[in-house]
Write a protein that binds this DNA or RNA. Structure first.
Length: 427
DNA sequence: TCTGGGGTCCTAGGACCC
DNA sequence: TCTGGGGTCCTAGGACCC
């Protein structure tokens, strides 16, 4: 059996931990640049605030109902996430927990006796809330896909389910599947949903009755096959390994306001490159290729749904894999020179590192020049200082200090748990 | 005026090899 | 006129996730 533990409106919950007066008030959290709404409390949902909807369209509702609004505070969410996951590891055993995303984890429940599934699921929910202040929902079922179905049901009616749903009999499973529209199944996105509905398959129960070969043929090969198997109670997606190294690392941002000049774009790209390189070093990797891109602002056609403009990018294969920020910035700057066009307005830029391999120079490598080993040490020192002092206290000059491209963050809360000078004050 | 960011997996098809 | 069979590796693109 698998359990999936999913935090309720995670970013909102994290904000509320340090703002108890908001516990039963409507709250929303905005994406970077205060562009979209990416988390809403139940109270905010009631007022019709749409998920992933643009903030400027919801502004009226937000102001009218006095909904508490926050810019995203990833320092806080990252730390709260760690607390939740650590709680799960402590009570269920490290080897049984797979962290799936910032607010979600799968748990292998094979060690739990069948008749105790309900009690243990409830205990997970209560312990996480007691230890971290974050409310979670727990869904338990024989496969991962089914546990997500269970979790949806737990979330939909929190009163009735107490945020816990266990699907442990064929009857319960079939009933749950019948109540689940096919588009809500984990792994069925918009395209697949459209196709399924065109076949006359409307709910998850109908989908689960389809032949495996049919699923393989119509829904992306093994992807569809696994999906149907999981719905048929046959586990086909195991517990993944934790802490797998990333195969690609990206740092991309919208600008706070459109940017025109080359110097600002270079500053931004150099800054993103530094951030990406930090992520790279955190997993002791080295990148063999770097891509940089810019997105020009496109004239808007009204009555058109929002679309991103074309991405203009270029890639450089590095002479040898590296995790040294200065090397990466040099390459990135070369790319920016190539892709930048005078006179255009840009609204976004980004950097991607790929061809990531294990960094062998960490310990010093006999076969590469001494200078490079020294650079690696320099990087470690920078990372340590930046980590212990504050972000970017040490940075490369290329990152600049004008920063007129910086993203909007009008409503960011203090980083209560990761900065001494932003601790919660009790009077 | 104003619409996020960062990932994964899989498949098809091309280039290349013997 | 006629042109095999079997592989590998890489990339682009499509789908999905939160």
């Amino acid at each position: 059996m698998y359990a999936v533990v999913d935090c309720n409106s995670f970013y909102c919950s994290a904000e509320r931990v340090f703002r108890p007066e908001l516990a039963d008030k409507p709250v929303v959290v905005l994406s970077n640049n205060d562009g979209c709404i990416i988390s809403r409390s139940d109270e905010a949902k009631v007022f019709g605030v749409k998920m992933a909807g643009p903030y400027f369209l919801a502004k009226d509702i937000i102001e009218k109902h006095n909904i508490a609004t926050f810019s995203s505070n990833y320092n806080l969410y990252g730390d709260m996430s760690w607390r939740v996951m650590e709680t799960l590891r402590i009570i269920m055993g490290e080897e049984n927990v797979e962290v799936y995303s910032v607010d979600e984890a799968f748990i292998n429940m094979d060690a739990v006796p069948f008749e105790k599934l309900d009690a243990v699921a409830l205990q997970i929910r209560e312990t996480v809330e007691q230890w971290t202040g974050v409310k979670v929902s727990v869904g338990v079922a024989p496969t991962k896909v089914l546990s997500k179905v269970a979790n949806h049901i737990a979330k939909k009616d929190k009163q009735a389910t107490n945020c816990v749903t266990v699907l442990d009999t064929p009857q319960k499973i079939n009933e749950a599947l019948s109540l689940t529209p096919v588009g809500e199944v984990w792994g069925v996105g918009r395209q697949f949903a459209k196709k399924l509905i065109s076949f006359g398959i409307l709910d998850a129960y109908q989908f689960s009755k389809m032949p495996e070969e049919w699923a393989r043929k119509n829904f992306g090969g093994v992807v569809g096959l696994r999906l149907v198997k999981e719905l048929k109670c046959e586990p086909s997606i195991g517990l993944g390994d934790e802490l797998v190294e990333k195969k690609m690392i990206a740092t991309t941002r919208m600008f706070g306001a459109p940017v025109k000049d080359l110097a600002s774009i270079k500053e931004a790209v150099a800054t993103y490159t530094s951030r990406a390189a930090e992520k790279l070093r955190r997993q002791f990797g080295a990148a063999s290729a770097i891509t940089a891109f810019v997105v020009p602002k496109m004239p808007r056609e009204d009555d058109h749904p929002f679309v991103h403009g074309p991405m203009i990018s270029d890639c450089i294969m590095l002479p040898h894999a590296t995790c040294v920020t200065s090397d990466l910035i040099k390459a990135a700057m070369k790319i920016v020179d190539r892709i930048y066009e005078e006179g255009k307005l840009y609204k976004k830029a980004g950097v991607m590192l790929s061809g990531i391999i294990q960094d062998t120079s960490v310990q010093g490598n006999f076969f590469i020049p001494k200078k490079e080993n020294n650079n690696r040490m320099l990087m470690s020192m920078m990372d340590n200082i930046n980590f212990s002092m504050r972000d970017d206290i040490l940075k490369f000059a290329a990152s600049g200090n004008q920063r007129n491209w910086k993203m909007r963050q009008e409503f960011r809360s203090p980083r209560y748990t990761s900065r001494w000078d932003e601790l919660c004050e009790v009077k």
